[in-house]
């Protein structure tokens, strides 16, 4: 094995890495936002809203992410055409991002829900007693505390998402893994590039999980 060809290829791999990180950051932000909305729906007194959110969650939790990515890649352009009536070209990046946001939201929802439920009931009463509305109570009192408690779990889920971004390979998006695969094939050194990509994923995930564990211990005290 000869890893020397990797060094000149680094700029190209870095572009792939940026795509991976963009998917990760936007996916986490969108997923947490949608997941929080779903969690609030699941906990609401409105039975219809709660039911819709519960169905959403159990639906997305029972199908593979790869299926969602593939389906959305085919379906998002169709759906957009129905809505807008014109042909809107949708890149693989956008359809993958939509897939990640909608899929991860189901998992983030459960984390946020548990986080909200872990806040003592009295906090809600105290905020109401001060004249806060439901929105203010959630925004100023409950969610800030809940997010603090669930930060480690949210980060853990984000590490999983980081690894799962490699599944965009299926629609040919040039993320880190795909960039490494295609360069390896071109240069006739597929093994070296694959191992290198694996190492990069490993180092990032490993370091991040270590950091999360550390954080968890600090928060537990």
């Amino acid at each position: 094995m000869d890893f020397s060809a990797i060094i000149p290829a680094l700029p190209g791999l870095w572009i792939g890495m940026i795509t991976t990180l963009e998917l990760l950051v936007l996916g986490v932000c969108g997923g947490v936002a949608l997941g929080t909305a779903l969690a609030l729906m699941r906990l609401s007194h409105n039975k219809t809203l709660a039911k819709i959110a519960a169905t959403y969650v159990s639906y997305f939790r029972s199908i593979p992410l790869l299926l969602v990515i593939t389906w959305f890649y085919f379906a998002v352009p169709f759906v957009l055409r129905w809505i807008t009536g014109v042909d809107t070209p949708v890149g693989a990046f956008s359809s993958c991002l939509v897939a990640f946001v909608m899929f991860e939201a189901a998992y983030f929802c459960e984390i946020v829900r548990a986080g909200i439920q872990a806040i003592p009931r009295g906090q809600m009463g105290a905020a109401y007693a001060l004249g806060m509305t439901y929105g203010q109570t959630m925004r100023l009192v409950i969610l800030p505390q809940a997010f603090r408690k669930m930060t480690p779990l949210l980060l853990q889920q984000s590490i999983i998402l980081f690894q799962d971004t490699s599944l965009v390979y299926t629609v040919g998006l040039m993320d880190l893994l795909n960039a490494a695969r295609s360069r390896g094939d071109i240069l006739g050194q597929p093994h070296e590039f694959l191992i290198f990509a694996g190492l990069v994923y490993f180092v990032i995930s490993f370091t991040a999980s270590r950091a999360v564990k550390h954080l968890q211990k600090r928060l537990a005290v």
């Binding site: 690894q163 799962d164 490699s166 599944l167 390979y169 893994l177 695969r181 597929p190 093994h191 694959l194 191992i195 990509a197 694996g198 994923y201 490993f202 995930s205 490993f206 999980s209």
Partner: peptide
């Protein structure tokens, strides 16, 4: 555990299948 949990499943699959 650390190795198998921190490398994406797809990368592992390619390693098993191609390498």
């Amino acid at each position: 555990v650390e190795i198998f949990r921190n490398v994406p499943l797809l990368v592992q699959l390619f390693l098993w299948y191609f390498l």
